[in-house]
Amino acid sequence: MRRAATPLLIVAALALGGCAIEPWVAPYERANLSDPIMSFSRDPVSASYMNHVHEVREGARGAGSAGGGGCGCN
């Protein structure tokens, strides 16, 4: 029981602690990050196609960039 609760407590502490974190990159400092050249999938139609090209010919699959989150910088 204690072993199961430990990771939950750590995660809960991190999550609650996040409310108090001072952003180390202020919103007005995110101009570079919001430039389209910094997007992980700038052109979704192309990213999806190349993902298909690779998955058809390789044994590996998954964890593609299409499923990633944004940068929270807009």
């Binding site: 400092e29 570079n32 990050l33 964890a63 593609g64 990633g68 940068c71 910088c73």
Partner: peptide, 23 residues
Amino acid sequence: HYRVGLSQVISKNMLLALNLETI
């Protein structure tokens, strides 16, 4: 498919993304 992604602003010039997927 089960997937989780984390993207993180590291600095005003750097982004990091971690993706895990189990199929």
